[in-house]
Every structure is written in structure tokens, then in C-alpha cells.
């Protein structure tokens, strides 16, 4: 929409794209090269058995810890995006509460091995069977399917960076106080993403494919919340006493 789109110069877009790519690289938990080198290290069957025989609450706690670690890197990513820290504190919290797990799912495609359908977890590459003890097979299948479909887009690091920022700066989150400011920032990020896609000579349909991923991410996060609620209904004390405080703040 030409009327509401901000006027942004090419130099400004280039600068924003560079800022977001740099922020992404600086705040990635693992380098892509590291992950690729580790991709042959899959869990052995007895290790898989070990995860499967863990009590449900112990596996939930382990995953909550891993998710929380990954989210802390996403918070750092957000802080380094030009304009994010200029938003009001309420909106910074709203965006991270709603979007940090979505960015973790986007980043997961970097740590995903499509050939073996495994993801880097707890020191090695793990297939869906490793997460059996959680008791939420449907969610795990959806997460793996999502990672697989993200990988099929073959996004470069700068494309992942820009898409992550676009997801994080979603202006349609509930409880935003300065929606217009977030909208402006998201529009600029979208223009920077389009700029990078063009520069990388990506096919025309890539942006609409990425838009579909936005709704897939929302559905994944909604399912994570549903599964957490179901788990908490059975193990309220485990969540209260053993889950990371940041995880509880975000998803409680």
C-alpha cells in the first residue's frame, strides 16, 4: 500500500538489511558451519532409548531449558535490531512474548538435517523419536515438518535474519500500545527483506511462501501453549518449581 508505506531510500534499506544480518550472526547460538560439521553425529539407539525412558516431566523440563536458552539469544537479536529499543518497553515485551518462540522455530531450520530428519538437540542430532517421552507426538511431528519445509526454501543466512526480524516485528500482536511505530518498523523490515531477496535473485514466489510460514509459526506456537497447559494441569508443581523462570514468564 503506497499510502501507508514509509518512504525509504535504497541506502536505508541496505543499511537495515546489514544491521539485521549482523545482529543475526552475532546472536546465533551456533554457527552454521559448526552445525554442518556436527550433522553426522546422530544419537545412537541406546541414547535414544535413554531419552525415551526419561519420565515425562524430566523430558519436559529439559526441553523447557533448551527453549529458554535459545530464546535468550533471540532477545539479544531483537535488542540489536535498529529501532527495536526505541519502541516503548511494553511493546518490546509484547513482541518478544509473542514472537521469540516463533524465531526459535525459524532458526531451527539452520540446525535441521533434512536427509535424516534430525535436529541438533542436547549435543547431537535427534530424530522425532528422541522426544517421545514428552507425550506430544503431534506437536513434535508438526515442528519437524515445519523445519523440513523451511529447509526446502534454501534460505541464506541474510534471508533467515531478515525473515526472523519480520516475524518478530509483527504489528498485529495483541496489547501493542504504539502499533503504528511497530507497523512502520515491520514495513521497513519487509522492504529490506524484499531487497535482499531481489539481490539474491530469488524467484518471485518466495515472499508468498514466507508469508505462509508466518501462519504456520502461529499455529505451532498455539499448539505449544496447548500442550504446555495440558502438561501443567497434570504436573503443576514441576512447572512451578523446576521450569526456567523466563519460560514461565513467557508462556505461563
Amino acid at each position: 500500500n503506497g499510502e501507508t508505506s514509509p518512504t525509504v531510500s535504497m541506502a536505508e534499506l541496505e543499511h537495515l538489511a546489514q544491521n539485521i544480518s549482523k545482529s543475526h550472526v552475532e546472536t546465533c547460538q551456533y554457527l552454521r558451519e559448526e552445525l554442518q560439521q556436527l550433522s553426522w553425529q546422530a544419537f545412537l539407539q541406546d541414547e535414544v532409548d535413554g531419552y525415551q525412558s526419561k519420565p515425562r516431566e524430566v523430558m519436559w523440563q529439559l526441553c523447557a531449558i533448551k527453549i529458554t536458552e535459545a530464546i535468550q539469544y533471540v532477545v539479544e537479536f531483537a535488542k540489536r535490531i535498529d529501532g527495536f529499543m526505541e519502541l516503548c518497553q511494553n511493546d518490546q515485551i509484547v513482541l518478544l512474548k509473542a514472537g521469540s518462540l516463533e524465531v526459535v522455530f525459524v532458526r531451527m531450520c539452520r540446525a535441521f538435517d533434512t536427509q535424516n530428519n534430525t535436529v541438533y538437540f542436547d549435543g547431537k542430532y535427534a530424530g522425532p523419536d528422541v522426544f517421545k517421552a514428552l507425550g506430544c507426538d503431534d506437536l513434535i511431528t508438526s515442528v519437524f515438518d515445519f523445519a523440513k519445509s523451511m529447509c526446502s526454501l534454501h534460505l541464506s543466512e541474510d534471508e533467515i535474519a531478515l525473515f526472523s526480524a519480520f516475524v518478530l516485528l509483527s504489528a498485529d500482536r495483541t496489547w501493542l500500545q504504539e502499533k503504528l511505530q511497530v507497523e512502520k518498523l515491520q514495513q521497513k523490515t519487509q522492504l529490506a527483506l524484499q531487497h535482499v531477496l531481489q539481490k539474491n535473485q530469488r524467484e518471485d514466489g518466495i515472499l508468498s511462501k514466507l508469508r505462509c510460514k508466518v501462519s504456520a509459526l502461529r499455529s505451532l506456537c498455539a499448539r505449544h501453549s496447548e500442550n504446555l497447559s495440558a502438561f501443567r494441569a497434570v504436573y503443576p508443581d514441576i512447572v512451578r518449581s523446576h521450569f526456567p523462570p523466563l519460560y514461565k514468564e513467557l508462556f505461563g
Binding site: V94, K97, L246
Partner: peptide, 17 residues
């Protein structure tokens, strides 16, 4: 919201390393 998200708020306040 800030009150209910003290850790997140703290992380946002910490200077970037």
C-alpha cells in the same frame, strides 16, 4: 506487563555484550 515480565524486562535493560 513490565511487572509480570521482570526477567524479560531485565534482559532488555542489560547492555548488549
Amino acid at each position: 506487563l513490565k511487572e509480570k515480565h521482570k526477567i524479560l524486562h531485565q534482559l532488555l535493560q542489560n547492555s548488549t555484550s
